[in-house]
Design a protein around this nucleic acid. Structure first.
Lengths: 202, 202
DNA sequence: TTCCATCACATACAGACTGTATGTAAAACC
DNA sequence: GGTTTTACATACAGTCTGTATGTGATGGAA
């Protein structure tokens, strides 16, 4: 039926195939050790196609990172939709973030390789449109419900983001991953309560 | 006077020169884009010497990372020595950590490139002997003074480490670095107070 | 003192990989 | 219907890592 593909369709199909296989190879070997030849072979094209669609290997990786980050953010948004208050939304979002980032593509591509390959600044630019945006919204909602002039939403967002990223990697390398995850799940609500507590004097 | 160098001296001198120049080049260009030829030229040897002293480029990088991490830990230890209590020690140590990591070599080599180039697990192994060891000691001292069965020292250490690492990179990329640093300095004691607070009911 | 083994490199080379330059068939357009 | 543009494929040049081999100096043994 779709024997006769239009050019635009072919263009999109090849690009999608490159992104799909690039994600697999980057996940398996990491950015530095990924050979572009491997990617294009799996996508059933040649390196000419890759360099037609992307300026260089880094640009391909950046596109994959953006995709991965968007996927994480989507899962967070979906999970925190049915929340009853800001605290609940933050907790649900956090759990969704951990779930998503514990999967190999997100872990390897988004948490480990992206900051080094793209630079911390560029990585945070991308993340700021996705997962970090949801975290910032959660923090701001908390501070809207319980105003606390001592806490800067921006700083809290970055500190929490750093802590959560590290939590993912710690859970992943733990001897007993399930137990580690439970411990984190138990600890995080406690920390949120304490961090966002109103000053004792009120 | 030292015209006639013994073999052991020569060995140590060349190794030290390689480490010194490698640190410079890795800091300037990052691990991936650093050419071993650049390093050995500055050290006034050839690549043969490099591969005699180190198994490969990664091993050289790992040795540099270990050096950098040791330097950070030394500064933390020195800064937290004259502390009057656990809280004071944690704060002093944290400030020393920020000061040390804000310098380019630590930032680029230790915070950005090391996790990707060595793998998170290996990076944490090294860090666990240095900066993270001091942080863990600080956390454990806090929990010794104010016991809190709800807080696992290991988890608190990893979460705080992640938050502090991110704080460094955030300060570094801020438009006004001095102001960003002041904001972090103002926020951290607040967070420590709240995180390590005994449960309200006592 | 002399001989030999080992050390601490230097040199030469093979292999892999990235990016670029060029060629080309099919589609799109006028 | 002829020409231009697209979406690749192919070929090539340059760079870089790691390895294999050569070599002079040093240190120990006899």
């Amino acid at each position: 039926m779709s024997r006769a593909k239009t050019k635009a369709e072919q263009h999109a199909a090849t690009r999608a195939a490159l992104l799909r296989e690039a994600r697999r190879v980057f996940t398996a070997t990491g950015y530095a050790d990924a050979a572009t030849e491997d990617i294009v072979r799996r996508a059933a094209v040649t390196r000419g196609a890759l360099y037609y669609h992307f300026r260089d290997k880094r640009a391909l990786f950046e596109a994959v990172v953006d995709d991965v980050a968007r996927g994480i953010a989507d899962r967070i948004d979906a999970a925190s939709m049915p929340a009853k208050d800001a605290f609940d939304a933050l907790l649900r979002g956090t759990h969704a973030f951990l779930d998503a980032c514990l999967e190999p593509p997100a872990r390897r591509i988004y948490l480990i390789d992206a900051p080094a390959a793209l630079g911390w600044h560029r990585w945070r630019e991308i993340d700021g449109r996705h997962a970090m945006r949801t975290l910032r919204a959660g923090v701001e909602a908390m501070l809207a419900e319980q105003p606390d002039p001592a806490l800067s939403p921006e700083i809290m967002t970055y500190l929490l983001s750093g802590a959560l990223n590290e939590a993912v990697l710690w859970i992943n390398e733990a001897k007993d991953e399930k137990a580690a995850r439970r411990e984190i799940d138990r600890t995080l609500p406690l920390l949120f309560e304490r961090l966002f507590a109103r000053t004792r004097a009120r």
